[in-house]
């Protein structure tokens, strides 16, 4: 469980991101070499989440922002957000701001 007051941001030195419409592509960099075998694509929701993880919003604030943006129940969203953060940390796309 990621804490409600925690703040996350994209590890911009480790990825190249590019938004296309509502979707996003993320190319991981390993020592600035592109790892084209681990390219990720995000749908509209994933893109909204990663954009909300901007190094300023707490998880609570991200959740509020997304609730206003999408027609979704709070419990479902909260779960999805937790899973997204776990996976994004695992893939080294985002980091916790200490």
């Amino acid at each position: 469980m990621h804490k409600p007051e925690a703040i996350y941001q994209v590890r911009s030195e480790k990825v190249v991101t590019r938004k296309v419409g509502d979707e996003m592509v993320i190319v991981p960099l390993v020592n600035s070499v592109a790892d084209m075998t681990r390219v990720l694509t995000l749908n509209e929701t994933g893109t909204a989440i990663i954009e909300a993880l901007n190094g300023q919003n707490t998880i609570n604030q991200v959740e509020e922002q997304l609730l206003a943006q999408f027609d979704v129940e709070q419990e479902v969203l909260s779960n999805d957000l937790q899973n997204f953060i776990t996976e994004a940390l695992d893939k080294q796309i985002i980091e916790l701001i200490p």
Partner: peptide
């Protein structure tokens, strides 16, 4: 694509 790129600049340009 045939893609082995060694810098952020080249990767960004390729993606674009």
């Amino acid at each position: 694509c045939i893609q082995h790129f060694h810098s952020r600049e080249i990767t960004t340009s390729h993606l674009n």
